[in-house]
Design a protein around this nucleic acid. Sequence first.
DNA 1: TCTGGGGTCCTAGGACCC
DNA 2: TCTGGGGTCCTAGGACCC
Length: 414
Amino acid sequence: MNNIIMHVDANSAYLSWEAAYRLQKGATVDLRNIPSVVGGDEQSRHGIVLAKSIPAKKYDIKTGEALFTARKKCPNLVVAPVRYELYMMCHNAMINILRDFSPKVQVYSIDEAFLDYTGMQAVHGDPVSAAYKLKNRIKNELGFTVNVGISTNKLLAKMASELKKPDMVHTIFPEEIKQKMWPLPVKELFMVGRATAPKLYRLNIFTIGDLANADPELLKYRLKSWGKLIQDYANGIEDSPVSENARPPIKGIGNSTTIPFDVDSMDEARKVLLSLCEMVGMRLRQAGFSAKLISVYLRNSDLQGKSHQRKYEAATDDTYNIFNLSAQLMEELWTGEPLRGMGVQVSELVPNDILQVSMFDIPNEKRRLLDQSIDDIRMKHGPKSVVRSIFINSGLSPITGGVIEDFKMMSSRF
DNA sequence: TCTGGGGTCCTAGGACCC
DNA sequence: TCTGGGGTCCTAGGACCC
């Protein structure tokens, strides 16, 4: 018997959620019906479009583009600020409804999830009518719309949910691939991004169908293993399971930020780094891991990025250690050009409970207790309740990044 | 006036060892 | 001074996703 998989995708998630929230608060205008976007704060150089309404799309406004250019395309564009706590609430409410339709739900991102409907027909009826019920329940109870894609695997379900939007149910069953998926531009295929698409164009591959029927040897020669992966996808071949709640163990924790002004002194650079390390350290300790690999990322005013990393035999979760090691890496990497952005990433994580060495390290033990009590206060009273004095009057945030509680992105691959 | 922030996975090339 | 190949580890960068 065939599997039945659904993919549920909230339409223009951040924007719809903001719109629903405003209506609930008594707003008279629905952001979804006017040209509007959710975007960052331009004053602190975080000014990009994160989500757009359908009317905004008509002005050719694109997700990821600068707010400035978006407003040039549409002078009366409404810009709403980012509100992650709201998004988390909407996410949770949406997932709870999905769980009523099947116990096997895989959260894929903040606004997408897979649902394994195999064997659920006896309870909720045929897949298409169940999908309509699900979609309408979300619309009626939560006030926003979703697209539902239905097929026999995750790839096809996801491709189906991305057909016409919003508020729609689509199927792409294997026998429908040729008719519904092959005519689409090849860049619409999952895993064909802005680097792969031009390579395919040069091979005269313009549609998903072209890719499906291309010479496998040619693809292998030009695109290595990637060629095989995307050709399989073009043919609807994919068989990863819907893995409910099985959160894969985290591999790394990173924080990066665009600084409101270009940094050109070592002193300032160290402060930014420290504010990033504070959050990395806290999240690392909260997750119960220590890290062996530390990596620093710098971005200059031309938006060129570079990184430098080093592996340490002694794993650490100590903010002070992480900061010192990353500061050293930064000094080795930085040639003094003005910096627009910086990042710190730790990986090669070791669970603290199997790590004993640092327990015997008395000087570290003292700092460990300090970190722990600061974490406790910050968890209770907010991340900025304890602030290092060097940040006072610095124009810099004393702690940056990752406030979004316990939310984890899944792998970008199935 | 330019383009955020969080992830995962893969690959190329060099170092080093046998 | 010149001559191998294989395996593994490491780093930097690039690919993709939302």
